[in-house]
Design a protein around this nucleic acid. Structure first.
Length: 222
DNA sequence: GACCAGGCACATC
DNA sequence: GATGTGCATGGT
């Protein structure tokens, strides 16, 4: 396979900078990381807009909001009841442990912060890493369904590989560079959305991954 | 109408 | 330890 750096360069040359995360502030990124779980971003935008318009993009105010009201505001992004609970769980941690200060939270060593986030009910590995990388601008690689799908369909990783294995796969071959990790993950999502859907649809290319000019993506990367 | 989307927790065997 | 299921809206 091509080196991870080369794959990155080719993706960057093809798609350009993705300007992630699409959130105004670190706190919005944190909120978005919960709301986007297994959900299309377009739906999350509506929920975030609702919170913003109500002036609720603030840890304390959001935490004090009644569950029923929070649920109603985030309803457009789906799983709204469980996500309301998960949001409250993170907010409780943020307020009690860090006095509501993200800045303070991100002063923790990355590994420790990651462990603490993973103890929160509703925060799994991808959400924890997304918060650390995209809200904290700290170098931890974010793995998601697209990452797994793209790399396993190419035969570059074991299809059975779990989150931690994929994360190590990237971090062991790339410098710990937050800007690089940020752009890399965003580019993989872009590639996945455009060319690597969940269910393969085209017989001509076993990978079902194509570039805008119709050339198979796998050939393009060789 | 079926399928999909930037997961995660929990029940059951 | 592995496998299955609930959570839910909105776009294609």
């Amino acid at each position: 396979m091509p080196s991870l750096k080369e794959i990155y360069d080719r993706l960057y040359n093809a798609f350009g900078p993705q300007n992630w995360w699409p959130g105004e502030t670190p706190f919005e990124v944190l909120v978005g990381a919960i709301l986007v779980q297994n959900t299309a971003w377009a739906n999350v935008e509506k929920a975030i807009r609702n919170l913003r318009e109500e002036g609720l993009m603030c840890p304390k105010r959001l935490y004090r909001l009644k569950d029923a009201e929070l649920e109603e505001l985030i309803r457009p992004c789906g799983y709204y009841r469980i996500k309301a609970r998960r949001l409250k769980n993170v907010l409780r941690y943020l307020l009690k442990r860090h006095d509501g200060s993200l800045e303070q939270m991100f002063r923790l060593p990355i590994d420790q912060l990651r462990r603490e986030l993973l103890e929160i009910n509703g925060i799994g590995p991808e959400t924890a890493d997304s918060i650390i990388l995209y809200a904290g601008n700290l170098p931890t690689f974010v793995v998601d369904a697209y990452t797994h799908r793209i790399f396993s369909r190419h035969g570059w990783v074991d299809p059975e590989a779990d989150y931690h294995t994929l994360k190590e796969f990237f971090e062991s071959q790339l410098e710990p560079d937050a800007a690089l990790y940020n752009e890399y993950h965003a580019l993989l999502v872009r590639l996945g959305k455009d060319y690597c859907k969940k269910r393969p649809r085209c017989q001509a290319c076993p990978l079902e991954i194509y570039l805008p000019d119709g050339q198979p993506y796998d050939a393009w990367l060789e």
